[in-house]
């Protein structure tokens, strides 16, 4: 079982969280000409990396906050967790 450190609540079991997918995907900016390709990349296309993967989770059965988790998709090691609006260097 994964143990995810919620930045608001601390270390909790995976059972309290729900998954939100790749966190590196950015919605195309508003008020700007957007190509079909940009929309495709936002809606459908995913890198689905093997190894370090930055992803969204929601602490659904806890504080209900969305967070970012940096996790290895092959070993499931969790390197770091961030608040959703936190800048990641």
């Amino acid at each position: 079982m994964l143990h995810i450190k919620c930045p608001y609540c601390g270390m909790r079991s995976q059972n309290e969280f729900s998954y939100g997918g790749d966190a590196s995907v950015k919605r195309p900016e508003l008020n700007k000409e957007i190509s079909d390709e940009e929309w495709d990349n936002f809606v459908y296309n995913r890198k689905s990396l093997r190894g370090k993967h930055l992803e969204l989770w929601q602490h659904l059965s806890g504080c209900r906050q969305w967070i970012k988790v940096e996790r290895d998709t092959a070993t499931h090691e969790i390197f770091n967790t961030y608040k959703a609006d936190e800048e990641i260097s």
Binding site: N15, Y19, G21, S48, E55, R71, T73, A74, H76
Partner: peptide
């Protein structure tokens, strides 16, 4: 299992 994975090994929940 509900999240991206290449592990070929599952999780109990």
């Amino acid at each position: 299992d509900g999240y991206n994975s290449y592990a070929q090994r599952g999780n109990l929940p």
